[in-house]
Amino acid sequence: MKKEKPNILVVNDDGIDAPGIRALIGVMKTLGKVVVVAPDGPQSGMGHAITIAKPLRLDKVNIYPDVEMYKTSGTPADCVKLAVNQVFKGRKPDLCVSGINHGLNHSINVIYSGTMSAAVEGAIESIPSIGYSYDDFTYDADFSQCLPWVKKTAELVLEHGLPIGTLLNVNFPKVTTIKGIKICRQANAKYAEEFDERQDPHNRNYYWLTGKFQANDNGEDTDVWALDHHFASVVPVQFDLTAHHAITILNSWKFN
């Protein structure tokens, strides 16, 4: 008896026309039946925002051959919610993949990332989920070095599944040759942020967020270290934000 191909949901935050999602669709088509639900425009930095104060649009589009595709006016997290409820009609896809994002989502960036939030939403829906990001912000980024590793990680997740409440954050360095994959922890690193203050033609102040990336972590088991040393980083991520190590401490306080 022939085994049915897995159903694979593809989402992103750079928009349905982004080259990164085109590259991801190409790989996923070799692994299963692909359904795409993606924002109708860029949604970078949206985090896990959802749309509750205005109606959502969901329109079928024909961009790539043999792929069922929809664009939505919503956020990356909205994309997954709409996919599960309106496209799959409550059935769960076998895999949810998000990306490939133009730019890294390592260390603290995972909190702000629309790419990763789409994958998190997939995991919340009990779908094995992966977020993919590449260290190249340019529109015409060459994803060819990433694609074999994208395929391998997706194949392994389809084969083995993931622990409940867990998803994968996969980042690729921009190098000639990726050495391999390192299973990592999230680095203690963030942006030292500044705001560039300017004035508009009406003499009103406005601000652009800027800053420099600072790594406060010398560990050789982190995503930052792996990427700096030409490895793809794979960090298992959970959406349970409970600081379990702090429960004992808080129980020692005199609340009552």
Rank of each mutant, 00 (worst) to 15 (best):
R198I: 07
A215Y: 07
A226H: 04
R198V: 09
Y206G: 06
L209Q: 11
N218V: 08
F213Q: 05
F213E: 06
D223K: 15
W225I: 01
F213G: 03
F213Y: 07
R204T: 13
T222S: 04
E197K: 15
Q214S: 08
L209F: 05
H202L: 08
A226R: 02
G211F: 05
W208Y: 09
A226G: 03
N205T: 09
H202P: 11
L209G: 10
T222M: 01
D221W: 03
E193K: 11
H202R: 00
L209K: 14
E220Y: 02
E194A: 10
E194R: 11
R204D: 12
K212F: 06
E197H: 13
A226Y: 03
D221S: 02
Q199K: 13
D223Y: 03
R204S: 14
N203F: 10
P201F: 04
Y206R: 05
D196G: 07
N203T: 15
K212D: 09
W208D: 05
W225E: 01
D217P: 01
W225H: 15
H202E: 08
E197Q: 13
T222A: 03
N205K: 07
D200R: 04
P201H: 00
N203D: 10
L209R: 15
D196F: 08
Q199P: 07
Y206W: 09
N218G: 10
D200V: 06
V224L: 04
Y206N: 09
V224Q: 03
E197M: 15
G219P: 14
A226C: 06
F213W: 08
Q199L: 12
D196C: 09
E220F: 04
D200I: 05
G211K: 12
F195R: 13
V224N: 06
D223Q: 08
F213M: 11
L209D: 01
E220K: 14
D221M: 05
T210V: 08
F213I: 08
Q214I: 15
W208C: 10
E197C: 15
N205V: 07
W225A: 02
N205L: 08
Y206H: 05
R198T: 07
D221F: 04
L209C: 08
G211V: 12
G211A: 06
P201C: 02
D223N: 12
W208R: 14
E197W: 06
N205W: 00
D200P: 11
E220Q: 07
T210K: 06
E197Y: 11
A226T: 02
E194V: 14
A226I: 02
N203V: 12
W225S: 04
Y207M: 11
T210S: 00
N216W: 07
G211H: 05
A226V: 01
Q199I: 15
N203G: 13
T222L: 01
R204N: 13
R198G: 08
K212I: 14
K212M: 12
Q214P: 00
W225L: 03
N216T: 12
P201R: 00
T210G: 01
W208I: 12
D223C: 12
F195L: 12
V224P: 01
Y207D: 00
V224D: 00
E193Y: 01
E197V: 15
Q199N: 11
E193N: 07
N218R: 09
F195E: 06
Q214C: 14
Y207N: 11
E197I: 15
G211S: 06
